[in-house]
Design a protein around this nucleic acid. Structure first.
Length: 412
DNA sequence: GAACCGTGGCC
DNA sequence: TGGCCAAGGTT
């Protein structure tokens, strides 16, 4: 038999924890050093951080904790209000799961999160990674969480090119018996700040002398990347209806699918053909004016939208058959569950892009309060009135964006 | 297993 | 600009 010590895989826990004690990042969802983390905070953060940067999630986390200090408070909130608070963060299915999960915790667990990885895994929106992360960070359970950061660190450390399941086995093998939560977050911090996707700072890494990829010089090729499909290009039109008092018509999208449950202005179908009859999909007959266009990229769709606007009057009750439809005053748009796509559409009506719907601050600048809708909007209505007076002049003078549909003179 | 699901930053 | 990335989960 071979000597067990000679075969033992390097365990990074000691070095990781020592590094963590001196270099840990400070986040609002993290407990103070040595303190016990709040499971509600850990869970909420993990839901927000799925495929999302810490900079983007941070202001949302602070807003949520401020508005709903406990999981019971969150469970008592209306779904639409949660969607409004989530607006701009993306992957809106997470907001639905968030509410569902809070309801389950309130109803089945008396407002107390379960501790075990297995029980957590059963909750809506909690997958293999999140269950392990919450169990380890909030409860100190010996659960091995592997996110993109930890996968990168371990893949390079062991120069590993195998399957995810094999990596999980390795992660469990080297998991420490104490301070599992700190260890997990240490690997995340090292992965984020040192063992970066590109230009890793190996000389600052606590594992520099143990890292097999570093020794071989192939750290840049790890972990093995999976090829991504290119986006489909689709085209369509958005129809902004403005009532005499300046209110805009919004409706709620279906719960399922893209932007599920979020508010929108009516839109045409989205097709691969950039020149189809968009106005045939208009919600009502009106003097639609093409004001401009926007581009927006989703995970799997590259979308170009022409933005049409029309002043409307008379009996508009027929529109109210739409799901959760309503007329919203301009200064109330910030309180609606408007995804970034729709905010971008509405920004075309203002002379200062983004300003009209996002408020004074443009969205998501370097860790700022991006994505948090303002309470007030300014200077927007006047410029829209000027634009609507100019009508066709505005439409023809505006530069057509690359992927916007061509102007259809015969229909204008 | 593969497709779907947002958004903003970086190079 | 276009491609890639990020504390992934669900169907």
């Amino acid at each position: 038999m071979a000597d067990r010590r000679a075969d033992a895989r390097y365990r990074p826990a000691r070095a990781a924890l020592r590094w963590y004690d001196g270099h840990r990042r400070d986040f609002p969802w993290r407990a103070a050093p040595g303190a016990v983390a709040d499971p509600y905070h850990v869970w909420l953060a993990e839901m927000m951080l799925q495929q999302t940067t810490t900079a983007a999630a941070k202001p949302y986390f602070e807003k949520f904790v401020s508005r709903w200090p406990s999981v019971l408070a969150l469970a008592a909130a209306e779904r639409g209000v949660i969607l409004e608070a989530w607006a701009g963060l993306g992957y809106y299915r997470r907001a639905h799961h968030l509410h569902q999960c809070a309801t389950v915790i309130a109803r089945d667990y008396g407002g107390v999160f379960p501790k075990s990885e297995e029980a957590l895994r059963q909750l809506p929106g909690v997958g293999a990674y999140s269950a392990a992360a919450i169990a380890a960070i909030a409860f100190g359970e010996r659960a091995a969480a592997i996110d993109a950061n930890i996968e990168r660190v371990l893949s390079r450390l062991y120069r590993f090119r195998g399957s995810r399941a094999e990596l999980l086995a390795i992660a469990r093998e080297v998991l420490p018996r104490v301070r599992v939560g700190d260890y997990t977050q240490a690997l995340m911090d090292i992965g984020s700040g040192i063992c970066r996707f590109r230009s890793p700072l190996c000389l600052a890494c606590p594992f520099v002398r143990r890292c097999l990829a570093r020794a071989a010089g192939d750290q840049d090729s790890l972990p093995v990347r999976v090829g991504r499909k290119s986006r489909r290009r689709l085209y369509g039109a958005a129809f902004v209806m403005v009532r005499g008092d300046g209110a805009i018509f919004l409706r709620r999208r279906e719960d399922r699918g893209l932007l599920g449950g979020m508010m929108e202005v009516p839109m045409s179908a989205w097709r691969g053909d950039a020149g189809f009859d968009f106005l045939g999909d208009a919600p009502i007959e009106a003097d639609w004016v093409l004001l401009g266009g926007i581009r927006h990229s989703f995970t799997h769709i590259d979308l170009g939208l022409g933005v049409y606007v029309a002043g409307v009057s008379g009996d508009l009750s027929g529109l109210m058959g739409e799901r959760d439809a309503r007329w919203v005053a301009l200064d109330c748009l910030g309180g609606e569950a408007l995804p970034s796509l729709v905010r971008k559409v509405l920004a075309v009506l203002g002379d200062s892009p983004k300003r009209g719907v996002w408020g004074a601050k443009p969205p998501a600048k370097k860790g700022g309060s991006g994505g948090i809708p303002p309470k007030r909007v300014g200077g927007w209505e006047k410029s829209f009135r000027a634009a609507s007076v100019a009508t066709r002049g505005v439409a023809s003078k505006r530069k057509r964006p690359t992927h916007a549909p061509p102007e259809r003179q015969e229909l204008l």
